[in-house]
Nucleic acid binder design. Structure first.
Length: 217
RNA sequence: AGCACAUAUCGA
DNA sequence: TCGATATGTGCT
C-alpha cells in the first residue's frame, strides 16, 4: 500500500472503546446527533452499542459516505448492534433550546438502550448532565470512533427518512432536497408560504417569516 | 471574537 | 476524495 499518501485520512477506530474497556467498562456506547442546524424538522439522536465481534465493515463518518452507503450500513448496524433512537420535535426544541433539546435527547437515548451502557462516547465538546455512567466528549467523534460513526449513520438515515415524510406533507418547502436547511429555495418558500407545522419557531428565519405573514395580514 | 455541533449547495 | 460558497444556535 502506498504509505506516503499526501494526506492521511484516519478512519474511525475502536481505540476509545478499547481504552474504556481496559478501564473496566463492558458496554461502550457511541452517541451522535443530526439535524441541529436546519430551520425545520427534528433533531435525531442515536445511541449505539456495537457488538465488538461483529463490527460492520466500512463504518465511517456519515459525512464521507454516500446515501446508498449509509442505507447499507444502517441495515448492518441494526442487525448487529444495540440501537436506541430518540427524536426531539420542533415543539421540544422551542421549549428548551436547540442545545438543551439535543442533550435531552442524548440522555434519553442512552437510557433507552436495551442493555445498560457503562461508558458513553459523545460526539462534540459537551456532555449531557445526569448521565447514568461515565462518559467523554470527543471532538470530531464521528470520524474517530466507530461507535459514534455508527450512531451518526443511524441518526442520519432516520432523519433523512423523516424529511421525505415532511416533504409529502408539505411539498411547498422542498424538504426532500435541502433537508430543512437554509437553502435559497427553502428561504424563498418560507417567505411566500409562511412557516409550516415542521418549522422551528424559535429560529430566526422562521420568526422573520412569521412576522412578515403577520404584517401582511 | 474564539470554539463546537449540524448540514446544504456548487464545482473539480 | 478534495475544494469553495452558504445557513442555523449555543457556550466561552
Amino acid at each position: 500500500m502506498p504509505s506516503d499518501s499526501p494526506v492521511i485520512i484516519s478512519k474511525p477506530t475502536l481505540k476509545f472503546e478499547r481504552a474504556a474497556i481496559k478501564r473496566g467498562a463492558k458496554f461502550v456506547c457511541g452517541v451522535d446527533e443530526v439535524g441541529r442546524g436546519p430551520l425545520a424538522g427534528p433533531v435525531v439522536v442515536s445511541a449505539v452499542i456495537l457488538n465488538h465481534r461483529k463490527v460492520p465493515e466500512g463504518l465511517n463518518d456519515s459525512k464521507v459516505l454516500t446515501a446508498a452507503q449509509r442505507e447499507a450500513l444502517y441495515e448492518k448496524i441494526m442487525a448487529s448492534a444495540i440501537v436506541s433512537i430518540v427524536v426531539a420535535p420542533p415543539t421540544i426544541i422551542a421549549q428548551l433550546n436547540i442545545l438543551q433539546a439535543s442533550l435531552w435527547a442524548m440522555r434519553k437515548a442512552v437510557l433507552g438502550l436495551q442493555v445498560k451502557a457503562d461508558h458513553i462516547l459523545v460526539d462534540g465538546n459537551k456532555l449531557p448532565k445526569d448521565l447514568p455512567c461515565p462518559g467523554e466528549a470527543i471532538v470530531g467523534g464521528d470520524g474517530r470512533s466507530v461507535s459514534i460513526a455508527a450512531a451518526s449513520i443511524v441518526a442520519k438515515v432516520t432523519r433523512d427518512r423523516m424529511c421525505l415524510i415532511m416533504d409529502c406533507e408539505e411539498p411547498q418547502f422542498g424538504f426532500s432536497s435541502h433537508k430543512g436547511y437554509a437553502a435559497p429555495q427553502h428561504l424563498e418558500a418560507l417567505t411566500t408560504h409562511g412557516p409550516g407545522r415542521h418549522h422551528r419557531m424559535d429560529f430566526a428565519p422562521c420568526i422573520q417569516a412569521q412576522r412578515m405573514k403577520t404584517i401582511a395580514a
